[in-house]
């Protein structure tokens, strides 16, 4: 059976991490499964886990009164969600709902945070990794604002 450290090292967003950091992360990690339609997080909840998706997609949604839940973005295999765990006050800003059966690696946020504080080198590697994720998501969101395929009269 493949070890957790090996599994982590295969994740695209962790490919820059050194083996020692991967080994450490493995200590905070566990495999999880969410059937389709599960709320991984609800807006306002405390975020205790960061997820690396392995299979299936998770929708990022906002509940609009009168219109119901609106999916604004979706996250798929290889991507990281739940990074608001690293921010303050560590609250979910939006709902995360599994759009399909989802397999993910969960990383305990508090475990990671303690390591980041005690080991700045590891902390910095985490920061770069999260910035990469944020950058990609932010760029995509900004471009979505352009309504590139739109301007329908």
């Amino acid at each position: 059976m493949i070890s957790m450290a090996e599994l982590l090292s295969q994740q695209p967003c962790l490919k820059e991490l050194d083996p020692a950091s991967i080994e450490f992360m493995a200590g905070c990690a566990a495999n999880t499964f969410f059937p389709q339609g599960t709320a991984l997080l609800r807006e306002g909840q405390r975020v205790e886990k960061v997820y690396l998706l392995r299979h299936g997609r998770v929708g990022i949604q906002v509940h609009v009164p009168g219109k119901g839940p609106k999916i604004l973005d979706s996250v798929g295999p290889g991507e990281l969600i739940g990074w608001s765990a690293f921010g303050r006050p560590g609250m979910a800003r939006m709902d995360l709902v599994s759009l399909e059966d989802v397999r993910a690696i969960s990383l305990d946020a508090e475990c990671l945070a303690r390591k980041c504080e005690s080991d700045p080198k590891f902390g910095y590697a985490m920061l770069v990794m999260v910035v990469d994720v944020l950058q990609n998501r932010l760029q995509s969101t900004i471009l979505q604002l352009l309504d590139l395929y739109g301007d329908r009269s």
Binding site: I71, Q139, L148
Partner: peptide, 11 residues
Amino acid sequence: NVGLVTRLIPT
């Protein structure tokens, strides 16, 4: 998926 095509490239 939801989001721009660029989102799907890294994965």
